[in-house]
């Protein structure tokens, strides 16, 4: 990206409030996950003597029924959520975008096949198919990542194919073909750079959905297994103490809400800023 284009990008970024707020919330999550790798305010070890401590300087949000520090649980849980989301979205991104690009470049029966297959997988509700997968292969972090990642493939494939087809119809692609370039080269030199912004926006939003899905699976006991902390399982455990310790359910809920809200805002903001229709006219 040249300097002038980068400057224009920065200028537009400043105008998008949702990008700024979403970016800050997302950054907050990332930083707390990173910090927890080096330092945590308490431990996640079970110390029964410390159970149900109220918020204090030692335990900022108190402790749970096993005496674990809630802030620490949340921070380590963030790690867990982010890892699951990153891996799951990456699976969907690479497989889905490749399939979508292939469909748009080859057209004909290749496109038909890929698209019918994604229609097929769309016919199952996402969370149900994830539950099915973990039921077959057993619960656990890796399987839940796979389940969420597989679900992301058709989403990316469809989006990529649609946007790529629109670019294939543009005259500069015709010009590239007249210049003697093959479909593979055109795909990487012209198609991908022109749809990248759309894919980035989609990835951000799916990132939020993946965090939500991981929490849901863990809540059902199909995701991250104990003793690794996870937001979903914290919610599950807090449920039994709903009337005794209501705040214990609020904290992980709030964490999930902030993550999803922040990422969605970030996606919206990126869409505003990266939208090719805005930058092309200039």
């Amino acid at each position: 990206m040249s300097d002038s284009r980068f400057l224009a990008f920065l200028q537009r970024s400043r105008r998008s409030r949702s990008l700024v707020v979403g970016g800050l919330l997302t950054a907050f999550l990332m930083i707390s996950a990173l910090v927890s790798l080096l330092w945590t305010p308490g431990t996640i070890d079970i110390v029964i003597a410390n159970r149900f401590k109220p918020p204090s300087l030692d335990h900022w949000l108190g402790t749970d029924q096993f005496g674990r520090d809630i802030v620490t649980m949340l921070m380590v849980g963030t790690q867990n959520s982010i890892v699951v989301a990153v891996v799951a979205v990456s699976i969907g991104l690479f497989a889905g975008v490749s399939l979508g690009l292939l469909a748009a470049a080859r057209r004909g029966w290749t496109e038909e096949l890929i698209m019918r297959m994604s229609d097929f997988s769309f016919a199952f509700p996402a969370i149900l198919s994830a539950i099915m997968l973990t039921a077959i292969f057993g619960p656990g972090g890796v399987n839940s990542i796979l389940a969420i990642g597989l679900y992301n493939i058709p989403v990316f494939a469809r989006l990529t194919r649609g946007s790529a087809n629109a670019i294939w119809a543009r005259e500069f692609v015709m010009a590239a073909r007249a210049a003697g370039k093959g479909r593979l080269r055109i795909t990487f030199e012209h198609i991908l750079p022109n749809i990248l912004s759309i894919i980035i926006v989609q990835a951000t939003i799916l990132f939020a959905i993946a965090i939500l899905a991981e929490a849901a699976l863990s809540y059902l006991g199909l995701g991250t297994q104990p003793p690794d902390p996870s937001w979903g399982r914290m919610l599950n455990e807090a449920q039994k103490l709903m009337f005794l310790q209501p705040m214990q359910a609020v904290y992980p809920g709030l964490a999930i809400a902030i993550a999803v809200f922040g990422l969605n805002l970030l996606g919206d903001g990126l869409r505003d800023v990266l939208d090719p229709r805005l930058s092309r006219k200039r």
Binding site: R170, E171, F172, A175, A176, G180, K181, R185
Partner: peptide
């Protein structure tokens, strides 16, 4: 292809907005 080249109608649609002029003009050298 070096023997026959094309100029298109739409001056906005026929140049890839993500490529600089050097790259666009050099494309047929492929």
């Amino acid at each position: 292809r070096r023997h026959f080249q094309m100029v298109f109608q739409d001056p906005y649609g026929s140049l890839d907005p993500h490529h600089n002029i050097g790259r666009i003009v050099a494309e047929p050298l492929a």
